[in-house]
Each structure stands twice: as structure tokens, then as C-alpha cells.
């Protein structure tokens, strides 16, 4: 019973969604949005589970004086502050329990939640994202080390593409005669991106799409059950 009911649901919903993709008539054309709405409602309730998990995990580590307990405390305090200011004074146009907090808004220029979001959360998020630049450099360095024929080829291609995307690359080969203009670095770079690169990406996308069809069919037909936690 524990597996049968979800399997029946998966089968019915899966078939209905596939059918609705090809039938524009009501009620089929409304099904996907309806199911998405249901998913959102369930997700909304499930958020509480997440918050409980977050609290439990952090409190246990703080109580147990885990070696890094101050980090967990900082996380918990941040979470609580955002929750409290959001509940009390709301966010953007939404009012909180204590209204819009006009006096605080007059002092800091916006609602406390929005203030913390713009001045604490966003810079932290951007900091994490900016790390990507350094990681790309270190990953590219490793990828372009010449070890074999393939890595050699990779490095040459990468250098062409990188130079071709800069004005310096264009300047380097600007002296080429009209007949050899296809060797102009920006043209070579465009060629690599448009043909070999697109072809490889599409091959991966097509095979992934077939994988998705197969995976979905296995789930709809109940052949694949491990996502439910068991296969009996």
C-alpha cells in the first residue's frame, strides 16, 4: 500500500501530463498549470519541514559544542533576525504584523527585511558568485596543461576562441588577405563555437532528452521505484 498509492498517482499524473501536451482543449490544457499549482501548495507546506530541519541541526551542533559551533549560531541568529523583521514589518509592498514600519523606513530608507536583503544578503551572494572567476582560472589552467594529443588540441582550440573574442585577436590577423579571411581569429572563433561546439552540445542534449523520455516512462510504468525509497 505504501508504494502502490504513489505508483498509481505517478501513473495517472504522468499519463495526463503527456496527453495534455498534445491536446489544447479544456480540461487538458489546464492540467499542467493545475498540477504545478498543487506542487506549489505542497512545497509551501514542505518549507516548514525544511525550517524545522535547519533549527534542529543547528541547535544540536550548538548544544553539543561542535568545534565550529559559532558558525551554526551565526546561521541561526541570521535566520531568526530575517524571520522576525519579515514577520513584524513585512517585505516590499506586503505589510507585517506591526504594519509597514514607517518610522524605521524613514530612518533607514526601506523596510528592515529589504534593508538586510539588499545590504547583507545580496553582497554575500555576489561574493560567492564572484569566486567563480578564480575557479574558472584554476580549472582552465589544469585543463590546458599539455599531457596528450587531446589536451594539446583542447588548448589550441581554447586559445583560438579566447583570442578571437578579444580585439587583440582581431588585430593579430587583420593583415590576412581577403582570400584567407576565414583564418581571421574572430572568424575561426565563431566557426568553432557555431559548428563543432554546437554539434557536440546538441548531441548531449538529444541523448539527455532520450534519457528523460526513458526515465519518465520507467517512472510512469512503475518499473523505476527507487525514488520512492524502495523497490518492493
Amino acid at each position: 500500500m505504501k508504494y502502490k498509492v504513489p505508483l498509481i498517482f505517478a501513473f495517472v499524473c504522468g499519463i495526463l501530463v503527456v496527453i495534455s501536451e498534445f491536446i489544447p482543449h479544456r480540461p487538458f490544457n489546464m492540467l499542467i498549470t493545475t498540477l504545478q499549482d498543487w506542487f506549489m501548495i505542497i512545497s509551501g507546506f514542505a518549507i516548514i519541514l525544511g525550517q524545522i530541519s535547519l533549527f534542529q541541526a543547528n541547535i544540536k551542533k550548538i548544544r553539543g559544542k561542535n568545534p565550529d559551533w559559532p558558525f551554526y549560531l551565526a546561521g541561526l541568529i541570521s535566520f531568526s533576525i530575517m524571520l522576525i523583521v519579515g514577520l513584524f514589518w513585512g517585505t516590499q509592498e506586503y505589510r507585517g504584523i506591526l504594519g509597514h514600519g514607517d518610522k524605521i523606513q524613514a530612518a533607514i530608507g526601506m523596510k528592515p527585511f529589504d534593508y538586510l536583503f539588499a545590504n547583507a544578503f545580496m553582497p554575500l551572494s555576489s561574493t560567492m558568485f564572484s569566486l567563480l572567476a578564480f575557479f574558472i582560472a584554476s580549472a582552465a589552467y589544469r585543463a590546458f596543461i599539455i599531457r596528450s594529443f587531446e589536451s594539446n588540441l583542447l588548448m589550441i582550440t581554447a586559445v583560438i576562441v579566447m583570442l578571437g573574442r578579444t580585439s587583440f585577436g582581431g588585430m593579430l590577423t587583420s593583415w590576412l588577405p581577403q582570400g584567407l579571411y576565414f583564418l581571421h581569429l574572430p572568424n575561426l572563433s565563431d566557426f568553432i563555437m557555431e559548428f563543432p561546439n554546437s554539434a557536440a552540445q546538441r548531441a548531449i542534449l538529444i541523448s539527455a532528452a532520450l534519457g528523460i523520455i526513458g526515465s519518465s516512462l520507467r517512472i510512469i510504468l512503475g518499473i523505476e521505484r527507487s525514488y520512492l525509497g524502495g523497490d518492493k
Binding site: S43, A46, G50, S53, L228, G229
Partner: peptide
């Protein structure tokens, strides 16, 4: 986990 739904499913999967 990033989402609560994934959390519940993951817990169930690992527990089983």
C-alpha cells in the same frame, strides 16, 4: 538539500 521536498524524499530514500 536545497528544497524541503527534496529533503523529505532524500530522507525516505536513505532510510529505506
Amino acid at each position: 538539500c536545497r528544497f524541503s521536498m527534496v529533503l523529505s524524499a532524500s530522507r525516505e530514500v536513505v532510510k529505506e
